[in-house]
Design a protein around this nucleic acid. Structure first.
Length: 252
DNA sequence: CCATTAAGAGTGT
DNA sequence: ACACTCTTAATGG
């Protein structure tokens, strides 16, 4: 939940491990705001930006809470969730630096349709709804960038519907592995973002046990390696081949 | 530094 | 899904 002023944080302020940045000095090239800093109104807008620090595991958007604004992820990673019927958490997507969070609550909705939880200590930029609407009305290039983002998100969510409804468990786990790999990449032979098996399951729409079983099968088949929580992809092409019939447009 | 504990990974039913 | 074991990370003296 957003805080009321720039200096307070929703977490313990003793934590000084994360830097405080202004848009002008922010190194996040991916950010839509940063990209449009050339515009005067966007520039003015950034002065009303609020900063929110989030500890690992902390939820900063509550499902169903009133929409007050929009978040940009400055640093860290976040999972966007939606609570299913039996209290099961469905991970809608993962977000990394520069991505927008909470955008779906924006237009006509009065409450957030999703929850968002930090996967690691994260730094968020927060912009109030009113302010943002003003900018969107007056700055076409910014609006255009945001529209591209919306279109992209929609397309991804359509792909996900298909994945959940038509793929087998094994295929969904593989799909999830490829997604995480696309999003976060590999580092030292393992996924750069460590996720629990439970989180893989919540994204793939299965149970933790199923994920563990598929993973150990893939391990036996030498397609992946594991070390504790860490998962490394050994044979990317073979994994892609398995779901190629579902994702014929998949990037090389 | 080692011992205890808690969390999460695996596995069999 | 549940019960259980094993491994690893966190904690505290």
């Amino acid at each position: 939940m957003p805080v009321s002023n720039q200096h307070s944080t929703i977490i313990d302020s003793r934590d000084t491990t994360l830097p405080i940045t202004a848009c002008s000095t922010c190194g996040n090239a991916r950010c839509l705001i940063k990209k449009n800093l050339g515009s005067t109104i966007v520039n003015t807008f950034t002065q009303h930006r609020k900063e929110i620090r989030c500890k690992k595991g902390q939820q900063f958007i509550m499902e169903g809470a009133a929409v007050t604004g929009l978040f940009f992820l400055l640093k860290g990673t976040v999972k966007v969730i939606r609570t299913g019927l039996h209290g099961k958490e469905q991970i809608v997507r993962f977000a990394k630096e520069g991505e927008v969070i909470g955008h779906r609550g924006f237009g006509t909705e009065e409450s957030y349709p999703i929850g968002a939880i930090a996967l690691e200590d994260s730094l968020l930029c927060y912009f109030s709804k009113d302010l943002l609407q003003e900018v969107l009305r007056t700055e076409p290039s910014f609006t255009y960038d945001l529209m591209l983002f919306y279109a992209n998100e929609l397309s991804k969510s359509e792909v996900k519907v298909k994945s959940l409804s038509q793929m087998t468990v094994r295929e969904r786990v593989i799909d999830t592995l490829l997604y995480v790999n696309r999003k976060f990449g590999q580092e030292h032979g393992f996924m750069a973002q460590v996720l629990s098996r439970r989180e893989y399951a919540d994204y793939a729409g299965t149970t933790e046990e199923q994920v563990i079983r598929v993973l150990s099968a893939l391990k036996k088949e030498q397609l992946i390696v594991t070390k504790g929580k860490r998962i490394g992809i050994v044979n990317l092409q073979l994994l892609k081949n398995e779901i190629s019939e579902h994702n014929f447009y998949l990037d090389s």
